[in-house]
């Protein structure tokens, strides 16, 4: 089957699948990012609690996304919200961890200078700590996004569309064309999103933070 023929038959379906897939990714990463950022900042203020929580999060991260979706599916049923919640939780971990370590790794002397200049805690956070942790936060965001593109494939497992539908159906029916038709766009989406985030990161990183410290 030529690619044109494939598009002729599946074109519309594929487009919808890509859009659904992207929707899952953007919504979940968006929710995960906001929650992770807030939690990461809070954790960086409470080192005693973080010492316990951060390793626990590390352990949670080893739970396969499949299980998350599976469990939520049992409780919430076959709804898009199931996928969104599962993916959001999953997207949360890398960003949370990187925000936390990013803030903590800000040089003590810079923080002291900021305090000495008369910055309030909020000003130190927004003018110094977050900008300096930005590259760590971004690499967390990149990781999350790429993972989420990957895990969103699982949505098809509970019949909720996305590019996974093509892959699953292809595998089940031994239809290679369907597998490629789903896998290729998924791979391309992941790569493009990764590059896009790299690009944004490069754009917003001030010259002073490039090329090491």
């Amino acid at each position: 089957m030529t690619p044109f023929k494939f598009l002729e038959i599946y074109g519309e379906k594929l487009l919808i699948a890509i859009l659904v897939h992207l929707e899952y990714v953007f919504v979940s990463v968006g929710i995960g990012f906001i929650i992770a950022l807030i939690l990461g900042i809070l954790l960086s203020r409470t080192p005693k609690i973080s010492k316990i929580i951060i390793p626990v999060i590390g352990v949670f991260q080893t739970i396969p996304g499949l299980v998350f979706i599976g469990v939520l599916f049992m409780y919430l049923g076959m709804k898009p919200i199931t996928v969104i919640i599962a993916l959001s939780i999953y997207a949360l971990f890398p960003i949370l961890k990187n925000t936390y370590t990013g803030i903590l790794s800000v040089d003590e002397s810079v923080k002291e200078a900021a305090r000495g200049c008369g910055m309030t805690n909020m000003q130190i956070l927004f003018k110094v700590e977050l900008p300096l942790a930005m590259s760590a936060i971004f690499s967390g965001l990149r990781m999350s996004t790429i993972y989420t593109v990957s895990w969103a494939v699982l949505a098809a497992m509970i019949g909720l569309g996305g590019l996974g539908e093509f892959i699953y159906r292809g595998i089940d029916t031994n239809n290679n064309v369907l597998i490629v038709g789903g896998a290729l766009p998924a791979a391309v989406i992941a790569i493009i999103l990764g590059l896009l985030i790299d690009c944004i990161q490069k754009k917003i990183t001030p010259r002073g933070l490039k090329g090491g410290k």
Binding site: E112, A113, A114, R115, G116, G118
Partner: peptide
């Protein structure tokens, strides 16, 4: 602190600025 200048050994310039 805003009315008192402060200089430290590690310099502590803000690298993002």
């Amino acid at each position: 602190r805003r009315k008192i200048g402060y200089v430290i050994q590690q310099i502590g310039l803000f690298p993002n600025m």
